[in-house]
Amino acid sequence: MAEIVPPQEYWWMLFNYYLIAAVILAGGVTMLLVYFLLRYKTSNEDEYGEDYPGPGRLPTRYAKIGPTRYLLVVTGIIVLGLTVATFPYTEYVELTPQTPDMTIWVTGFTFGWRFQYPEELGGFTTVNEVVVPTNTMIEFKVTSQDVFHAFGIPEFKGAKVDAIPGIVNSLWIVTPDEPGEYDIFCYELCGVGHSLMVAKLKVVTPDEFQRFLEEKAGR
């Protein structure tokens, strides 16, 4: 089946880049702060730095900006650069790169998720459980029949869209090679049962999936 990079791989890659940049920059700045604190500590209250206005007075001149501006430019470029660099990946995730193997409609309701399988697989619906085969590219078309929910599968990082009445949002995932079970949560407060809006994504072997379809068709 599909040989396509799962979105969460890119997500983790970018997250790690961000983390490294953040740790270096934030860590560097923090170290500078700590160093200055220790280096310039004094216990003499009456010692003043060179441009201190003095008690009960006001500053007269603006202090200058020194070489810090270069630091600012560098960090600015890093921040902006990182953001723009994520755009191709954003497009990859948002504009489904190729025709998915299977499209499942998801409708949020108070309080649960309804999944509708494609016509060619039987067009049946399930509630709070969606069974899919391994190693398949699956598209979820998400909407809501009543209020604002948000559909997310945290294990597949970045697989989350809002479920809004009147609007269809889509997301896609590639199921792993191994069978497994994953949680689906609601990520927008939608009422008293919000915490109970948990569904299961069951990834099964193609054989098992066939059996699942037959069972559904038999009903």
Partner: peptide
């Protein structure tokens, strides 16, 4: 800044 990236925010939101 992490959240400013759309793709990352999809997971954080």
């Amino acid at each position: 800044v992490f959240q400013a990236a759309i793709i990352l925010d999809r997971a954080f939101r």
